[in-house]
Simulated assay, not measured.
Amino acid sequence: MTPEVLSPSDLSYDAALAALEWLCELGADEAQGDLAMDCYALPDRLAKPDLPAPVPAGAAATAGMLAASQATALPQRQAPPKVDQVGLARQAAGQARTLADLHEALDGFETCDLRKGARCTVRAEGPEAARVMIIGDAPDREEDRAGRPFIGRSGHMLDRMFAAIGLRRDTPDRAAALFLAPVLPWRPPGQREPEASEIAMMRPFLARMVELVDPDVVVLMGNAACSAGLARRGITRLRGEWSEAFGKPAIAMFSPVQLLRSAEAKRDSWADLLALRAKLDSLG
């Protein structure tokens, strides 16, 4: 039996409205045309327009960024010019005529980044005409807080060591006086070892300090001091040997910190102290 097909003209207004509401409830809410369409009779594959070949997401992003950069044409940032840090230090130190001038030059030396993280500038101290100048390692936490070299336990150890051969830091007598200086005036962050570039940058200040103090002997205590004075490291091999640093007779010794850690090193340090005393006596 063929189903009856009604045309829109055969439906009353109310019937047509009821039919439309029924179709909307079924989800058929989009008009297709005057004639009915059998969606099941559509071909499996419809003709598709020609599309460009797909571009990988990464390549598309890169191409987009390149196009954007070319379109904006922003000027490229130029690398900052390199600063001759050693040359600046040599110039600043060379202009100092006294130790006070040298300390002032250090205070105004902004090139070294170590000063940004340090609490204080650790100044050298002692009589300006001392016979013995001691150059120690970079400042530790206590020295950074006080702004003085060789204090705390290591300072007490140093005082006892040199008092045994008649030398002190707190005497105006040149024959018995010690002048103490750190290899760097600022503490490296985290108490790390000073870098070679940092030692090289501050070496002109040390060299000028030796010229102004004019000691008879320089004592290099620790690896950092040996790097600055001898351009060598390995304190265990270097200790006890006489050489020349900053134009002066120099001897390398263990630092007080190392002596506090190793009792065995005290015997070697005593031999080095006796060698230092003999050297001073031979120089008159």
Rank of each mutant, 00 (worst) to 15 (best):
Ile151Met: 11
Ala164Pro: 00
Arg232Ser: 08
Lys279Ile: 01
Gly108Leu: 05
Arg192Trp: 04
Ala89Met: 07
Met202Trp: 13
Ser255Arg: 05
Ala28Glu: 11
Pro189Val: 14
Leu35Lys: 11
Ala71Pro: 01
Ala41Pro: 01
Asp101Gln: 14
Asp268Cys: 06
Ala124Gly: 12
Ala252Asn: 01
Gly58Asn: 10
Trp22Ser: 12
Ala265Pro: 00
Pro172Trp: 10
Ala130Gln: 07
Ala92Leu: 03
Ile235Lys: 03
Phe254Arg: 02
Glu4Arg: 10
Thr98Met: 13
Pro8Val: 06
Arg90Trp: 03
Arg203Thr: 15
Pro194Arg: 12
Trp186Ser: 01
Asp38Glu: 14
Asp216Leu: 10
Ala63Leu: 13
Gln78Ala: 14
Arg187Tyr: 02
Pro204Met: 09
Val132Asp: 02
Gly147Pro: 01
Glu21Arg: 15
Ala15Lys: 06
Asp50Tyr: 03
Ala196Gly: 04
Lys116His: 11
Gly58Ser: 10
Leu74His: 05
Leu206Asp: 05
Ala71Trp: 14
Leu259Ile: 11
Cys120Tyr: 01
Pro3Thr: 08
Ala250Asn: 07
Gly33His: 11
Gly155Lys: 06
Met253Glu: 03
Glu25Cys: 02
Arg267Val: 12
Pro189Gln: 15
Ala89Tyr: 04
Leu212Glu: 09
Phe205Asn: 10
Pro194Tyr: 07
Arg208Phe: 03
Gly33Ser: 12
Lys266Thr: 13
Gln76Pro: 04
Gln70Trp: 06
Glu193Gln: 05
Ala18Thr: 05
Phe162Arg: 00
Gly240Leu: 04
Asp159His: 03
Thr236Trp: 03
Met65Tyr: 02
Glu128Ser: 15
Ala252Cys: 11
Glu143Gln: 12
Pro194Ile: 08
Ala265Lys: 13
Met133Pro: 00
Phe254Val: 03
Ala59Gln: 12
Ser269Phe: 03
Pro194Gln: 06
Asp14Met: 04
Ala92Glu: 01
Gln191Pro: 00
Ala224Tyr: 01
Arg145Ser: 11
Ser227Phe: 05
Met209Cys: 13
Ala96Thr: 11
Ala250Trp: 04
Ser197Thr: 08
Cys226Ser: 15
Thr171Lys: 04
Gly33Cys: 10
Gly87Leu: 10
Gln76Met: 14
Pro127Cys: 12
Asp216Val: 06
Leu114Thr: 04
Thr111Asn: 01
Ser154Ile: 09
Thr62Lys: 15
Gln258Tyr: 08
Ala15Cys: 00
Glu125Met: 07
Gly87Cys: 10
Pro80Met: 13
Ala250Phe: 02
Ser197Lys: 11
Trp22Gln: 13
Arg169Asp: 08
Gly166Thr: 04
Thr111Pro: 00
Leu184Arg: 06
Ala93Asn: 05
Glu264Asn: 05
Met161Asn: 04
Ser243Phe: 00
Arg141Ala: 15
Ser269Arg: 05
Leu220Pro: 02
Val55Pro: 02
Ala61Asp: 11
Gln191Thr: 12
Arg90Glu: 12
Thr2Met: 07
Asp38Pro: 01
Asp84Thr: 08
Glu110Phe: 04
Ser243Ile: 00
Leu283Thr: 02
Ala207Asn: 13
Ala231Ile: 00
Arg168Thr: 07
Pro8Phe: 06
